[in-house]
Design a protein around this nucleic acid. Structure first.
Length: 112
DNA sequence: GCATTGACAATAG
DNA sequence: ACTATTGCCAATG
């Protein structure tokens, strides 16, 4: 039983991030939506910032909606290094989301 | 308890 | 492509 609502939200977000396959990326907003928290992209960022130690999470596979890294140095360099090691290509400092974005098997599609 | 900040995003000009 | 504004909500001071 989660102590606070925010903890369960964080857990949902972490759970989604764990599912991002190697060589693919997702955006903060996308992760939040898949976690059942639409319009809370910021919370996704906060959840990742607050990753508990001991858990191995592919945090580097999450980018902002423009396909850019949202981290300050020196972590930005590390994130880019990891992504490139997985085959993700950076063009002009950003990733082509149309090409590298993860499609979550679409279990929870966005209704229009 | 209010104000500011923050690993964001959508929209407008 | 750029800045500004607004929505969102938890953390921090």
């Amino acid at each position: 039983m989660p102590a606070t609502p925010r903890e369960s939200s964080y857990r949902r977000i972490w759970a989604i991030v764990k599912r991002i396959p190697r060589g693919k990326v997702a955006t903060y907003g996308q992760v939040a939506a898949l976690a059942g928290l639409p319009k809370q992209a910021r919370l996704a960022g906060y959840a990742l910032h607050n990753t508990p130690p001991r858990t191995t999470l592919p945090w580097h596979r999450v980018l902002n909606a423009q396909g850019r890294i949202s981290l300050p140095q020196p972590q930005a360099r590390e994130q880019r290094r990891r992504l490139e090691a997985e085959g993700v290509v950076f063009l002009g400092g950003r990733v082509d989301l149309a090409r590298h974005r993860w499609q979550a098997g679409n279990a929870a599609p966005v209704l229009d």
